[in-house]
């Protein structure tokens, strides 16, 4: 049956309202204070580190994000850990919250399609995440310029921006997951808990599980040297099911120009290579392209799940 009118009518209105709600909500303020404090802490640590062994590094600015001084982890690894939390905070009650506030039936009775509601919620969340990440990145760069007294190189800027886009995609995956859970689960508290559990499993336990699974699927045969590589590749494949792993790999390749590969390297492959020589920025971006595509795909799959469930949901649930 063909329906009249555009499914996107009102999407932008809902997205802007969602964004405004998020930006003024106490929940978002709390999470952002947490992120900001950790970001400043880790960046400060990195700057101290850079000052101690101020070498002639062409990519000083990238070290701001990857450099870690004990006991603090680096800015990048903090992001990998905390960005999902921000995204979950934005999305966990996107749909079931409207039901529990009894606003859903009223909104759906407006002259818009259901599609616009879900698209708007996702876009609104993504917009806020984008603003937050951009602000963080600008703050970090500003801090770097102030404390190091050096402007960033153009390569560092491009890599930094690519990292920003990758982070936004990573946040999008978690936002889509949170919205999907808020559609499937009726109570907002339950959907928040479910999202947080998945976050814990993926960011903490998955790296422990992957080697175990790989050992079980492809045990190492001491007589066949290739079996070691098979096991490693299987382990890597399993680990890459987690968006956290994909994001970690992207971070590593984008922020460290000397990183050339993520898989095993044979000695003959290194023949003629200058160890530690930086890779051109475009080459690094090409290297992370599969990871980036995987992240976008995960986001689309989760959003589609939310979309299908939401379209079939009864209004008086």
């Amino acid at each position: 049956m063909r329906r009249e009118g555009s499914p996107f009518k009102g999407t932008w209105t809902i997205a802007l309202k969602e964004a405004a709600d998020h930006i003024t909500s106490a929940r978002m303020h709390l999470v952002m204070v947490l992120v900001l404090l950790t970001a400043i802490g880790s960046a400060y640590g990195a700057i101290e580190l850079l000052r101690q062994n101020a070498d002639q590094d062409a990519f000083l600015f990238l070290k701001l994000m990857t450099g870690a001084r004990e006991p603090l982890p680096s800015f990048a690894s903090f992001m990998g850990f905390l960005i999902p939390l921000v995204a979950i905070a934005l999305g966990f009650d996107a749909v079931n919250g409207e039901f529990s506030r009894r606003t859903m039936s009223r909104i759906l009775a407006q002259p818009i399609y259901r599609d616009a509601v879900l698209f708007g919620k996702f876009l609104g969340g993504l917009l806020v995440l984008g603003i937050a990440l951009m602000t963080l990145w600008l703050l970090l760069t500003g801090l770097g310029i102030l404390l190091l007294g050096l402007p960033p190189s153009s390569d560092a800027l491009v890599r930094g921006l690519a990292y920003l886009v990758a982070t936004l995609a990573y946040a999008g995956v978690w936002l889509a997951l949170a919205i999907a859970l808020s559609t499937i689960v009726h109570a907002p508290a339950t959907s928040a808990l479910a999202a947080l559990s998945i976050w814990l499993v993926v960011s903490v336990f998955w790296s422990i599980t992957a080697p175990l699974l790989a050992q079980w699927i492809a045990p190492v045969d001491p007589l066949v040297p290739m079996s070691v590589i098979t096991q490693f590749e299987i382990q890597q494949a399993i680990a890459r099911l987690s968006p956290g792993t994909l994001y970690g790999e992207m971070t590593q390749l984008l922020l460290d120009p000397s990183a050339r590969t993520l898989g095993p390297i044979f000695i003959e492959q290194l023949h003629g290579a200058v160890i530690g020589a930086p890779l051109p920025t475009m080459q690094s971006i090409l290297l992370v392209w599969p990871q980036f595509s995987g992240m976008i795909a995960a986001m689309l799959v989760l959003f589609t799940l939310a979309y299908v469930v939401f379209q079939r949901q009864e209004v008086r649930a």
């Binding site: 009249e4 003024t24 506030r101 039936s105 009775a109």
Partner: peptide
């Protein structure tokens, strides 16, 4: 209303039971 929902919902308003608004 299923084929042309936007026009129908433009002309007809629905006030649900125990209607909710955005409290903030």
């Amino acid at each position: 209303p299923l084929r042309d929902p936007l026009a129908v919902k433009q002309a007809a308003g629905y006030l649900p039971d125990a209607v909710g608004f955005y409290d903030s």
